[in-house]
């Protein structure tokens, strides 16, 4: 059996390196939200309901950031077997799952007044829900497997196949239901909306990076503690 590189003992991360960045991300998000809400006029059809787009759209788009990180570091883990890569992929999957859930919840809050229903079987909605379920399975798998090496390899495989399945699910649902609405682009909306959207896209991206980073540090600390306990249990033979 090939084993996780045992020479590199995991080091707990230095305390509080991510905190400053986190504060910056949160303050940036608040500023971006305020700016977007103040400068954009109420939408002709939706009125102030449109304002939910400044959270919904950036969060939805940044779920792809998360799942791209999962794909990237899952592949790298299978290739190089560094435990850090597995922990980073898992952190991104956790943040991504939460953000997918948030995307769905915000979309439903908007859909109820705008469409009159909480849910429609639209390709984008449906594939987002399936994506959420796939990564809920990924997180469940990690819970049910104890051996770190096995957990790493298996969740990398599930992560890679899950990420691969995202466009496939979208395509199949799109063929099944062709009543999706046309996607808006910067050229079809008022410039004041575009600024608000772009500001908030950046803000949520920063927040996403912070959350993944923070979760990764926590996972690293946890594993480093386990390493210390293991070494102690072996009579400090490796110390």
């Amino acid at each position: 059996m090939t084993s996780v590189n045992a020479q590199t003992t995991l080091q707990a991360p230095a305390q509080g390196r991510s905190t400053g960045f986190g504060w910056f991300a949160v303050l940036f998000l608040i500023a971006a939200q305020v700016t977007a809400i103040v400068i954009s006029p109420p939408d002709r059809d939706m009125g102030d309901l449109q304002k939910i787009m400044y959270v919904h759209f950036p969060v939805a788009l940044n779920t792809f950031t998360c799942f791209f990180v999962v794909l990237l570091f899952s592949v790298r883990f299978l290739w190089q077997r560094r435990e850090q890569d597995d922990l980073l992929a898992a952190s991104a999957a956790e943040v991504g799952t939460i953000m997918t859930g948030l995307t769905l919840a915000l979309g439903m809050l908007w859909g109820r007044p705008a469409w009159g229903v909480w849910w429609v079987w639209d390709p984008r909605l449906t594939s987002t829900l399936v994506l959420f379920l796939i990564f809920a399975g990924y997180l469940a798998l990690r819970e049910f497997v104890e051996d770190p090496e096995r957990r790493g390899v298996w969740s990398a495989a599930v992560g890679i196949l899950g990420a691969l399945n995202v466009p496939i699910v979208y395509m199949s649902v799109r063929w099944w239901r062709t009543l999706h609405q046309v996607q808006s682009s910067p050229s079809t909306v008022d410039p004041s909306y575009v600024i608000g959207i772009r500001l908030n896209l950046t803000a949520v991206l920063l927040l996403t990076i912070f959350l993944i980073w923070r979760r990764y540090e926590a996972a690293l600390t946890e594993r480093a503690a386990e390493h210390v306990l293991q070494t102690a249990a072996l009579g400090g033979a490796n110390a």
Binding site: G137, L141, S172
Partner: peptide, 16 residues
């Protein structure tokens, strides 16, 4: 529980 949880969402395109 784990097999259906992992498998069913992945099978959506095939089943559809």
């Amino acid at each position: 529980v784990l097999l259906p949880l992992l498998l069913f969402p992945m099978l959506v395109p095939v089943l559809l």
